[in-house]
Simulated assay, not measured.
Amino acid sequence: MNILKSYIREGEHQTQDFKFRVDDAKKIARTLAAFANTDGGRLLIGVKDNGKVVGVNPEEEFHVIQGAAAMYCKPELVVKTQIMQDDHKLVLEVTVDEVKNKPVKALDDDGEWKTYVRREDHTLLASKILIGVWKKERTKTSTPQTFDRDEQLILNTIKEAGEITLSKLYKETKLKKAYIDRLLILFITWDVVEMNITSGGTYFSVGEML
């Protein structure tokens, strides 16, 4: 089995996406940025969602990809490409590495720079909490030995719920939203709280150390 067939057998997942062709540079920029903000990834252009190889003109697709990475990603992304073949059909493989200094933003249709991440086979908008965690990780502080009353209230509310959304945490604790946001970001960097980002929403649960 050649390497292309091996990739296709994996299907679409967190680090792999199939594209029939690339018509919208802005839209593909979101996928590239999401890969860079998560675990890196691979685009196979010339492959349908069901894995059927239809082939493309690699040169045409290459120019759109380069434009997306240069003009619609901030900072500009470096992408690697190679041409793969299935019988007489050509597929363009595009790979993106995970970046160290997150986030990479992509320009949306309204002209706004937004942050995207990859979860399973979905490209999703990053939450303000995740963006805050990335920033905080650059100056990570040590976990305290004890928590004050408000901190313990947040942790107990999350623990009792098993998992909870941010909006429900706001409602149940009745603390100021910005204050909860700041503490959640700290808890996540301390590995006290875990954040699970899914296509159905973002959920918080307490870590194993509590």
Rank of each mutant, 00 (worst) to 15 (best):
D86P: 09
T141C: 06
L210V: 15
I180A: 06
K136F: 13
L124N: 01
A33Q: 00
A161Q: 06
K48Q: 07
T173F: 02
L166W: 11
K19H: 00
T38Q: 02
L125V: 10
R42C: 13
E93W: 08
I3S: 12
R182N: 14
D86Y: 15
N196D: 10
G111A: 08
H122F: 15
K128R: 15
R118W: 02
L92I: 07
A33M: 01
E93L: 15
T146W: 11
I180M: 07
D49C: 03
D191V: 09
A68I: 01
D110F: 14
I131V: 15
T141M: 08
V53D: 07
P144A: 04
N196I: 09
V79M: 02
V117F: 01
V96Y: 00
L4K: 08
Q85C: 12
S199D: 08
T95N: 05
A36C: 06
D181E: 15
Q145Y: 11
E76H: 09
V78E: 14
I83F: 09
T38W: 02
V56Y: 01
T139D: 12
D108Q: 09
T38Y: 01
T139F: 15
V64F: 03
T202A: 05
K140P: 08
T143H: 10
K177T: 13
K5G: 10
L107W: 06
M209Y: 10
Y203L: 01
C73R: 01
M209A: 13
A70F: 10
G162K: 02
S127A: 07
T115F: 03
L43W: 02
G207N: 03
K52C: 09
Q82K: 15
T189I: 11
M1E: 08
T146H: 11
E163C: 14
K176L: 13
L153T: 09
T15N: 14
K176D: 15
D24N: 12
T31D: 04
D110R: 15
E163Q: 15
V22F: 02
T115D: 02
K171D: 14
K159M: 11
E12G: 01
G201F: 07
A126D: 07
D109I: 13
D121Q: 08
V117S: 02
I164W: 00
E120Y: 10
L77P: 00
E61S: 00
T31A: 04
K27G: 05
Q66N: 11
G41V: 04
N57A: 08
Q66Y: 10
V64K: 04
K176G: 12
F204P: 01
D86Q: 12
A34H: 05
Y7M: 14
